[in-house]
Amino acid sequence: MTVLIPLLPFLLLFLFGRSGDPAPGLFTSKSDAARYECVRTTREAVSREKPGALKERAPRGDFLEEELFRCDAPLFARGDRPAQGDALLDTLSEQINEIVAGAEVAVPNAPAWSALAHHGDDVLARKIRFALEVALRSREKAVESELPHLSAADIVALSQKPPQESYPLLCAKLPSRNKAWLAAFSVDAKETVLHAGVCHDEVWTWLL
């Protein structure tokens, strides 16, 4: 045993060398590691994206080998929010861009746009609607943050029908002569993709 004690610094040296690794390990728990979304990167890419973030390499090279990761820490780690909402938000930008691109093709000349969203979670529905509005504005569309004015009887009648029937009926009630209404919604608690359609000139067109 006494023979082994002088060798311990070698193990400590190794562990010190690994201390910055984002993978779960001796000193990084799985839950801490899960907070980071990492991709492998190169010194050139880091220099481009964040100049000065890395120390210059020694002229004759470094003794230790270098492995670089770019890790982003999302505001909410996996498990902090309900799983379906979390999964939906993970890919929300891509989905919204796909929906808006489809809407542009379906209704190329709408003078104004409004966004609608439906989800079991109201907070998430507002986020989806906001994301739709941002995506429309980024494409230089005139966006009005208007919500449809429906009577209580209409709301009850529409809510009792499945979405594939209720949205075309809703379209008939919307003032869509000079405006396109873009709607995105979720129909199943286990799916992590959105469905979408657009209403213009009282015609409902399914996008996804």
Partner: peptide, 14 residues
């Protein structure tokens, strides 16, 4: 040690 990289750290609803 296993570390999820691309795609594997995403949340899932089922």
């Amino acid at each position: 040690h296993y570390q999820p990289l691309q795609g594997l750290h995403r949340s899932y609803a089922l």
